[in-house]
C-alpha cells in the first residue's frame, strides 16, 4: 500500500472522527451543558469534516497518476 492509499484511509477515519466529535459536542451543548466551548467545538468539527471531504476529492484528483501500491 502506498502513501497515497494510506492517506485515503487516514482522511476517511479523520472525516468520521470530525463528524462524530461534532455530533458529540453539539449534543453536549443542546443537552445540559450550554457551554459556548461545546458549540464552538461542534461547529468547527463539522466544518472540518466538510473540509476533509473537499480535500479528499482534491487529493484524489491531484494524485490520480500515482499508484495505490
Amino acid at each position: 500500500m502506498s502513501l497515497k492509499a494510506f492517506h485515503i484511509v487516514f482522511v476517511t477515519a479523520s472525516t468520521l472522527l470530525a463528524f462524530g466529535f461534532g455530533a458529540w459536542a453539539l449534543w453536549q451543548y443542546f443537552g445540559d451543558s450550554r457551554a459556548l466551548i461545546d458549540l464552538v467545538m461542534g461547529v468547527v468539527s463539522v466544518l472540518a469534516g466538510v473540509a476533509l471531504i473537499v480535500y479528499g476529492k482534491f487529493f484524489l484528483k491531484k494524485l490520480k497518476h500515482i499508484s495505490y501500491l
Binding site: L3, H7, V9, F10, A13, S14, L17, G20, F21
Partner: peptide, 13 residues
C-alpha cells in the same frame, strides 16, 4: 507518520 496519526485518531475519542 500516518500510522502515528491514525493511532491518535483512535486515542482521542
Amino acid at each position: 507518520w500516518h500510522f502515528v496519526d491514525l493511532v491518535w485518531i483512535f486515542l482521542f475519542p
